[in-house]
Nucleic acid binder design. Structure first.
Length: 198
DNA sequence: TATTGGATCGCC
DNA sequence: GCGATCCAATAG
């Protein structure tokens, strides 16, 4: 049960996004632990990346993207859903990885309650869905994933994902981003049943 | 101060 | 394919 540490996150965002595949996201709640294997991520880079919230510089919402690695960046999208990101790179180097999908591991019962469905494949196969399943909202925004008392953190997996099981693709929902919409900054595990769908 | 549109989801 | 529903970001 080894938490990922600061040096893991303080690297190039695309590298972190890729290496997060297979790692385990853990949520501590009053009802116990809820966890899942990270099977899909997207990298959002700095001000050059037209799809990234950081591209217009620091604002009240995105300021945590400019912090040192290992903080959570959680925001509300479309007025309804939350998106979960982990901040990457060193202080003043904006970047974050969007966690798009999980393979459920523990706390299945809680996830079903939180998501109001019995269908396991529909619990965590999308960024908004996994936040609902793990009870993640903006109360956790700007908190650290690195502390002993973190309510949300990532545990190192014993199993590493072989290179030939990792797929790269353009990011989803960023058609407005010019040449950046086609960059292969989305990473997912091939043939995994919980990859989000278009 | 007003307007616009989004790193989504679920139902029509 | 479209509406839900909030609020950050920008323009005026």
């Amino acid at each position: 049960m080894q938490k990922l540490k600061k040096y893991f996150f303080e690297r190039k965002t695309a590298v972190v996004a890729k290496e997060l595949l297979g790692q385990i996201l853990v949520r501590k709640t009053e009802k116990g632990l809820i966890s899942g294997i990270i099977i899909e991520t997207e990298a959002y880079l700095g001000k050059e990346d037209l799809a990234s919230h950081a591209n217009r510089g620091k604002t009240p919402r995105n300021q945590i993207m400019f912090a040192e690695g290992g903080f959570w960046y959680i925001y509300l999208i479309y007025g309804i859903h939350h998106c979960l990101n982990i901040v990457t790179e060193k202080n003043n180097r904006p970047g974050a990885v969007l966690i798009r999908a999980l393979e459920p591991l523990r706390g299945l019962k809680e996830m079903k309650i939180n998501r109001q469905t019995e269908n396991i494949k529909n619990l965590t196969n999308g960024p908004g869905k996994l936040c609902q399943a793990l009870k993640i909202d903006r109360r956790l925004n700007q908190t650290s994933a690195l502390n002993a008392d973190s309510e949300l953190f990532i545990v190192q997996s014993k199993i590493s994902i072989p290179e030939n099981k990792i797929k790269k693709a353009p990011r989803i929902g960023v058609d407005y981003a010019g040449i950046w919409k086609d960059k292969p900054l989305r990473f997912y595990i091939k043939d995994n049943l919980f990859v989000s769908k278009r």
